[in-house]
Design a protein around this nucleic acid. Structure first.
Lengths: 215, 215
DNA sequence: ATCTGTGAACTCGTTCACAGCT
DNA sequence: AGCTGTGAACGAGTTCACAGAT
């Protein structure tokens, strides 16, 4: 496996999504790096580098074979067998995740959700079994789930994260607005909505200031 | 204004959040860069650089004055007057945003939400007025809102984004799993949950592989 | 003695520019 | 002629390491 940055992985996931959307109406069965570039607003050189990195080669005449490229990316990104995922916290955010994810990626499956609301526990919601958060460790170990999504209020996030790690989880997607303190071998992806809003507001202001300045 | 990377802005927002949480139980009124480092898991040098960049100086003896540092960061990040924000799409995700945001940052306010569901239109939800998406342009122009949050299904995202831009919005926080095509002066922050899950799954697998390799 | 502030070095990711292929 | 693959240059962001302050 070549060294691969987090950003390359992100782009590869986006290429794959794009190619999948493209395939049905296949006017062509090949695509050039500059075409992918236009669609993604990355640069052609970057796209060639990413594709090179996963070991696929195109033809200087036709560009990249759509099907083969798609296959190479999927082989690189996906695990050999389906990966199971757990969501902790079934508030609005947890439900939004279930909705968004539904039928999206056949190689990933939201296998269980946890919540502490008796109205939700032991029911099937959106096709997924909901358990009491108190049995989190057992279920996750039993099912060998390796990815956990934290969608609980901020006060509970660190505790839940530690319990997930103790249960054998290797990667956490954290939606709570805290920086989790976990052992370095655990992959943490933060999706901090409040931070994102504050950042957007900052750059909106900056853009307004610069406009004024250029008048 | 010195040149500032997007990442520095993110960190500054996190420092501020941390300092705000810290203030009530002020055992001390000063803090060293290495203390902030431990709490954020950034490096002390980076923290000093960020603080230097906004023009605040600490004392080599006591470190940074909590109150003054907080004030300097806020002055740098916040607009002089309150900024108003619009959310488009009041599904689970939109509601989650309203919840998360409630009472979080007094300088930012979710001023309006838009949806096309008659059950929501013209009602006040979570303390925020909901309008029909059809009047988006009027309301946003009228209120001079400069930040928009896209929480609609992926098929509508590009159209809504263009309408937001036409209404004068300067920054967009996009939760739909597409790359929006917009003029370059518009700041776009993507928060692509599906991508985030796929990425986490990839790194979970990688971590498992590396473990096996080290045995 | 122990901190901050910061020039310099370094690391990592991106882009350039061109050789090589067809 | 027009593409891919890629060494080399570049640039942004981070860390080092130490001068300066007290």
């Amino acid at each position: 496996m070549p060294k691969m940055s987090e950003k390359s992985i992100e782009r590869l996931i986006l290429y794959r999504r794009l190619l999948l959307d493209l395939q049905p109406n296949h006017r062509k069965d090949h695509i050039y790096s500059h075409e992918l570039a236009k669609m993604t607003s990355f640069t052609p050189a970057q796209i060639r580098r990413d594709i090179m990195a996963i070991g696929y080669s195109g033809s200087p005449v036709h560009g990249y074979d759509l099907k083969l490229l798609l296959h190479s990316i999927s082989e690189f990104i996906d695990a050999p067998e389906k990966q199971e995922i757990a969501i902790v916290g079934l508030g609005h955010l947890g439900r939004a995740l279930l909705n968004y994810f539904h039928g999206r990626n056949p190689n990933l499956e939201i296998a269980v959700v946890f919540d502490s609301d008796p109205k939700k526990i032991n029911r099937v919601i959106h096709g997924v079994q909901c358990y009491n958060t108190s049995v989190l460790e057992q279920i996750i170990q039993q099912k060998r789930i390796c990815v956990g999504i934290i969608a609980v209020p901020v006060e509970q996030a660190q505790d839940i994260a530690e319990r997930l790690v103790r249960s054998g989880i290797k990667a956490i997607l954290n939606f709570a607005p805290v920086r989790l303190q976990l052992p370095p071998e655990i992959y943490i992806e933060n999706s901090d909505m409040i931070l994102a809003v504050e950042k957007a507001a900052f750059f909106a202001r900056k853009s307004i200031n610069e406009e004024r300045f250029n008048e």
